[in-house]
Design a protein around this nucleic acid. Structure first.
Length: 365
RNA sequence: GUGGAUGUAGCUCAAUCGGUAGAGCACCAGAUUGUGGUUCUGGGUGUCGUGGGUUCGAUCCCCAUCAUCCACC
């Protein structure tokens, strides 16, 4: 199956399916992205600790990274990035970029914020200055950033919010989605809509029925992994992900652990992003074929073997656990770099393996 | 050599008017899900310098001793 998406230059190609799992490509003007894919998070115009060259190099070979509207708008600001000619040029990254709308950060990071039907007024977590974000402003910012995939401005309610608040967030997110879609975008920028609804499948279905007709290039599942029990998240994925249109990419926002990704893929999700591999790397928590490794643990003090004997990344082929532990305990910058390179490579390989499994065992579409 | 002070956790220091001791950091272990290089959660790891004495009981009181620091000769 190969279908052109509404935005010119974007094509979704699904080669094979295994149950609900899909393997294929998302073709964009800046390059093709194998699906399913994990997208490293580069909130502030950088995947922390990595150079663009390191992200591109095999075996990591990141095909798309994230940037964040909220952070980049507050710092360094649109004049700086716009003056550079957009985020790709500013950050020296030529491959695709997906930008989050800033909605999540406003609710999770910003200070006092007043939400009304038009948008959100919030205070910067950096200097306390007041700003206002609306669907139009968010899309304008994402337009100046020049991302390849922009996200609709949404409201992500707290997982434990009472039903009336959930419903109001759904209504706002629907209205904001339509307003986001109405903003004229730069050529070559796709737009994804976001479905909310918490862990209530009925609410999810109802909201999807409002979001899908707007005509987005892809659909995101928002509002998961925000504190709900993992089984709850899996229940929603199993009952909802596959109901999103098959001819559009499906993106699960902010998830997750390697096991979560596998579950998501099997439920029909194509794209993921999460801070976990990069943040955990900086905190000495590494993912390996033998499970998690807390590199600072005393038991690695004299372990001169590789972090993960099955991993082809430089960290594993060239360095020992003992050395990595030393770097981590000494708070050396290289510790964050080597750990991040490894965790991202682990995630990339994890997704590649899932993709291979679907391609080999699945049915053609 | 004389006088004085201080010796308590790996470090810096508390406390106990006599009932076997805590804090910060460090250390050990776990967490981190649309990123504030964070943060959070749990763990005390101790011959209270050493040896005696008094006492039902001493880290605390007494004696000796060792170490370190300060002042004086």
């Amino acid at each position: 199956m190969k279908v052109d998406l509404p935005t010119a230059g974007f094509t979704l190609e699904i080669e094979r399916v295994l149950g609900r799992a899909r393997a294929g490509w998302l073709h964009t003007p800046r390059g093709s992205i194998p699906l399913p894919v994990f997208m490293p998070v580069g909130t502030q115009g950088t995947v922390k600790a990595m150079t663009p060259g390191e992200l591109e190099a095999a075996p990591l070979d990141a095909r798309i990274i994230l940037g964040n509207t909220y952070h980049l708008y507050l710092r360094p600001g649109l004049d700086i990035i716009g003056g550079a000619g957009g985020l790709h040029r500013f950050a020296a990254w030529d491959r695709p970029i997906l930008t989050d709308s800033g909605g999540f950060q406003v609710f999770s990071l910003a200070g006092i914020n007043k939400i009304d039907d038009d948008g959100v007024t919030f205070q910067s977590h950096i200097d306390g200055s007041r700003h206002r974000l609306t669907p139009e402003v968010s899309l304008h910012i994402q337009g100046v950033l020049g991302s390849d995939i922009a996200m609709a401005f949404d409201q992500c309610p707290a997982g434990d919010a009472p039903p009336p608040d959930q419903e109001r967030a759904l209504r706002r997110t629907t209205a904001w989605a339509a307003r986001s879609a109405a903003v004229v975008r730069p050529p070559g920028q796709a737009l994804f809509g976001i479905v909310q609804g918490g862990t209530d499948l009925e609410r999810r279905a109802r909201h999807a029925a409002e979001i899908v007709p707007i005509g987005f290039d892809g659909h995101a599942i928002g509002g998961l992994s925000v504190g709900e029990p993992i089984p709850e998240m899996y229940r929603v994925l199993d009952g909802f992900a596959h109901t999103l249109p098959a001819d559009r990419p499906r993106y699960l926002m902010g998830v997750g652990t390697p096991a979560d990704l596998e579950h998501g893929v099997m439920a029909g999700v194509d794209m993921f992003d999460c801070v976990m591999p990069t943040r955990n790397a900086r905190n000495g928590n590494l993912f390996t074929s033998q499970g998690r490794v807390v590199i600072g643990n005393a038991k690695h003090k004299q372990d001169y073997g590789p972090l993960d004997p099955e991993c082809p990344c430089t960290t594993c082929t060239r360095h020992s656990r003992a050395y990595l532990r030393h770097l981590y305990n000494a708070k050396e910058i290289l510790a964050a770099r080597l750990a991040t390179l490894h965790n991202l490579t682990f995630y990339a390989r994890h997704m590649r393996q899932l993709r291979e499994k679907i391609l080999q065992e699945g049915q053609p579409v």
